[in-house]
């Protein structure tokens, strides 16, 4: 693990004995940038959420009206439900598959480097490009339906992206295909940090493979699991590219997400206020979920 030995020690801050060794001024450009691009823009954008600004006229303060609509309108409910469903299954599946792949590819397999390379390759590609490839696979005359027909399963063929029962799951498949390899890499890195003598000792003690995994490997993978759950959670909550490329939110509202609604309400309908309210909801969601997750996962790391 040459890259960054930055597993947080209990007291991570190791200060130089001489005070103020690095002048604050060095951080000034970055601080200014943070104030402008994050805090300032965030406050400005957040303020829109309490107005009826349409991008053209003078904004009027409307209090919480936008938030009431976010909580009650059909498109908002769909966007919220879809985002949560997508995130939950995306995190779960990509972690399960990623962990499975990591366990399978950790050890002396022939061609394991090539196999790892294959599973990780989608991670580096742009989600947009990946989604277009899958759009073809899911298309009505595409490989998926053709394959089902070849297997004699004509009854199972569908308009995958146009059927409200399958559209969201199709988007999920694309996300899981693309990013399971990332979870695999996290878990592989975690596995490589586990001392082999520990496992060997357990083996000599006669522990079954499952027991060895349950009692030694799994607990020691906790830091890997933290990253492997936290990062896809943020990705999942912000899902945008895949939906825009695959379904554009349809059919109906079947695949709208918070991020696509933010984009559409703001940039397509010019409802800057309402769109900003969506964005604030997304922000709150990301903050709450991330903080809870980090607390739980870190506590789990410490417990183990």
């Amino acid at each position: 693990m040459g890259a960054a030995p930055c597993r947080q020690p209990k007291d991570p801050l190791m200060y130089s004995p001489t005070a103020a060794r690095a002048p604050l001024a060095w951080a000034a450009p970055a601080i200014v940038i943070m104030l402008l691009f994050h805090y300032g823009a965030f406050v400005a954008g957040g303020w829109y959420a309490f107005t009826d600004w349409d991008g053209l006229s003078t904004p009027n303060f409307v209090g919480l009206a936008n938030f009431r609509q976010v909580l009650t309108s059909a498109e908002a409910r769909a966007a919220l439900t879809n985002t949560l469903l997508l995130t939950f299954f995306y995190v779960t599946l990509s972690n399960l598959i990623g962990l499975g792949l990591a366990l399978m590819l950790n050890g002396a397999l022939r061609a394991q480097n090539i196999l790892r390379m294959v599973f990780f390759a989608p991670v580096v590609m742009s989600p947009l490009a990946v989604s277009y490839v899958w759009k073809f696979i899911f298309s009505v005359n595409g490989p998926l339906n053709a394959g089902l027909e070849a297997l004699g399963l004509e009854g199972a063929t569908r308009v995958w992206l146009g059927d409200p029962d399958t559209a969201l799951w199709s988007v999920l498949v694309v996300m899981v295909w693309q990013f399971s390899g990332l979870c695999m890499a996290f878990y592989l890195a975690g596995l490589q940090g586990i001392p082999t003598d520990l496992i060997e000792a357990a083996e000599i003690d006669g522990a079954s493979p499952w027991r060895r995994f349950r009692k030694i490997t799994f607990p020691l993978l906790a830091p890997a699991a933290t990253v492997s759950i936290a990062l896809p959670t943020i990705f999942g909550l912000r899902t945008f590219d895949q939906v825009i490329a695959l379904t554009f939110g349809g059919p109906g509202y079947a695949t709208e997400t918070l991020a696509t609604q933010i984009f559409k309400q703001t940039f397509a309908f010019g409802r800057f206020g309402y769109g900003a309210a969506f964005a604030l909801v997304l922000t709150a969601l990301v903050l709450v979920v991330s903080v809870i997750q980090l607390l739980v996962l870190r506590a789990r790391e410490d417990r183990i």
Partner: peptide
Amino acid sequence: PHQLSVVP
């Protein structure tokens, strides 16, 4: 999320 800051 930068979705909010992008407009300003």
